[in-house]
């Protein structure tokens, strides 16, 4: 008996079918609610992980009901089925925990980032982070001419900027980019982004229900504009970065 046959037998039972449909609907609702920008970051991240947990419920029922149907001597298949929800739940939980603690280090290794030796920028970031009561992020430099910057929320938050930014941006524009990333960290939006990506990797519902992260970008821009007292540098930096990628194409 293969997995598809077991699934069809499982879904033919009205109780399990309604449980599966109900779980999918609840998961979709939780995912949709997690897109609500008005909720706090903590609530949104909780909703994203609750969405994954709800999806595991019908999977657990399927595993146990199908495991019972298998003959006693089919020990390996039975064990695998029983273990399936725990394995998937464990993988997601582990990815979440490892991601939170290890993501900056993983990015540093993967992209070959080096500590940014720019005292002016480091002072600005430290001053602004303390002003807003946040943790001071470490600054890292990426050896690429592509102008890019991103931040990673973690127990040790980090901001990554590429050398290409230094080539095409003025000092004020560069500060605007770094403040934009600091704005992301203040709003903890990298945590929402990471959780969203993790959910999209394991949940079919998250793939089909769209969700945009434009609001996070706007919040980060607002933060940088408020700190610089003018939108000029944020706008001109964005224009230069966009024209780089437009010309590259």
């Amino acid at each position: 008996m293969n997995l598809l046959e077991l699934l069809l037998i499982y879904l033919k039972q009205p109780a399990y079918l309604s449980l599966t449909i109900g779980s999918l609907l609840v998961a979709a609702l939780l995912w949709y609610a997690s897109r609500n920008q008005k909720l706090s970051v903590g609530t949104r991240v909780f909703l994203i992980y609750a969405h994954i947990a709800v999806l595991l419920v019908p999977l657990a029922f399927f595993a146990y009901s199908s495991g019972c149907m298998l003959p006693v001597y089919d020990c390996n298949a039975k064990t695998l089925l029983y273990a399936l929800p725990f394995i998937l739940g464990g993988v997601v939980a582990l990815a979440g925990v490892v991601g939170y603690f290890m993501l900056p280090a993983l990015y540093r290794r993967r992209l070959g980032a080096q500590r940014l030796q720019d005292k002016q920028l480091a002072r600005l970031v430290a001053r602004m982070a303390r002003k807003h009561g946040g943790q001071v992020p470490s600054l890292w430099l990426l050896d690429t001419a592509s102008p890019m910057a991103f931040s990673v929320s973690s127990h040790h938050p980090a901001i990554f900027v590429s050398l290409g930014l230094f080539d095409i941006l003025s000092r004020k524009e560069l500060e605007a980019v770094v403040l934009h990333e600091l704005g992301h960290l203040q709003h903890r939006s990298p945590l929402v982004k990471f959780s969203t990506q993790l959910a999209r990797a394991v949940s079919p519902v998250a793939l089909f229900v769209p969700g945009k992260l434009n609001h996070e970008e706007q919040c980060a821009d607002t933060f940088a504009i408020a700190e610089q007292g003018t939108p000029i540098h944020v706008t001109s930096a964005r224009g230069k970065i966009e024209s780089f990628f437009a010309f590259q194409e």
Binding site: Q117, A145, D167, K240, S243, F244, F247
Partner: peptide, 24 residues
Amino acid sequence: ALSSVAVILDRLHARGVVERSVET
């Protein structure tokens, strides 16, 4: 545009026509 010059230099670097070093 300045960004176009940066793209061209990166392209020439990728093709091995120019080399680059980092100045602090």
